[in-house]
């Protein structure tokens, strides 16, 4: 009967555990820009939902795999081939990137190998505000409110979790400096209101590019 249950996918023999998830962001509130200026971050939050941790993707197709009720997910046009979800923390979370790490809750995780993770963005994904000062000393305030509706996929998470050596936590971090690295801070304040926003020049595109770029997000276990 146990074997029949396995074949039917009704019984999962893996052991499950609860792993705390902590999240945080930039270590420094001051960034240096490529044009020699500086950015003082005064407010920075990211909002995301449903952290999912995925096993390594199946890479070798086999006749046995054809028997499996689980099929690989194929994206189009992107080629995102995640493994099966083996851990998750559902909900919507807003993380203050300038504050101490926040504990988001416990992720329910299976024992085993992990390869990637993903989070979902919906609505206002990031709010970043502060002051940009160019090399000549001229300052302009900025306030970027970035909306997005998509998953951040393939966040590297190569680790193994076991009940015998459980991790202290899973750490999800957002690298604000990396995310803002694509911004052309010399672009004009198009609407002339004195504050750089996503309504000005290319700021919407360049800020969003970094926010939704996978390398701005990272996952790691804390032991």
């Amino acid at each position: 009967m146990w074997i029949l249950g396995l074949v039917a996918g009704c019984i999962d023999p893996r052991l499950a555990m609860d792993v705390p998830v902590v999240a945080g962001g930039a270590d420094a509130a001051d960034l240096t820009t490529s044009d020699g200026g500086t950015v003082l971050i005064e407010e920075a939050t990211v909002t995301f939902g449903d952290l999912r941790l995925e096993q390594p993707a199946v890479t070798v197709a086999s006749v046995l795999r054809a028997l499996s009720p689980i099929q690989a997910a194929y994206a189009h046009p992107g080629h995102d081939y995640p493994g099966d979800v083996a851990g998750e923390l559902l909900g919507t979370f807003t993380v203050d990137l300038l504050a101490e790490d926040a504990e988001l809750g416990d992720a329910a995780c299976y024992e085993g190998d992990y390869a990637t993770g993903r989070v979902s963005l919906a609505g206002i994904a990031a709010l970043v505000a502060g002051t940009y000062t160019n090399a000549a000393g001229d300052s302009r305030p900025f306030r970027f409110e970035v909306t997005a509706d998509q998953d951040i996929v393939a966040i590297p998470f190569e680790t193994t979790m076991s009940l015998a050596d459980p991790p202290e936590a899973v750490s999800l971090r957002f690298d604000l400096a990396a995310a803002l690295a694509y911004v052309d801070w010399t672009a004009p304040d198009t609407d002339g209101d004195g504050t750089l926003t996503i309504a000005d020049a290319d700021y919407d595109n360049t800020v969003r590019f970094g926010i939704v770029a996978t390398p701005s997000w990272s996952l790691a276990v804390v032991r």
Binding site: A154, D202, N205, F209, G210
Partner: peptide, 25 residues
Amino acid sequence: SIPALGYEVGQFSDVLTLRQFVSHL
């Protein structure tokens, strides 16, 4: 510039120009 264009690259943030983008495609 791909960031200025607003195209999305996901995990491939080294794709920064339209030539690199089409090449990836």
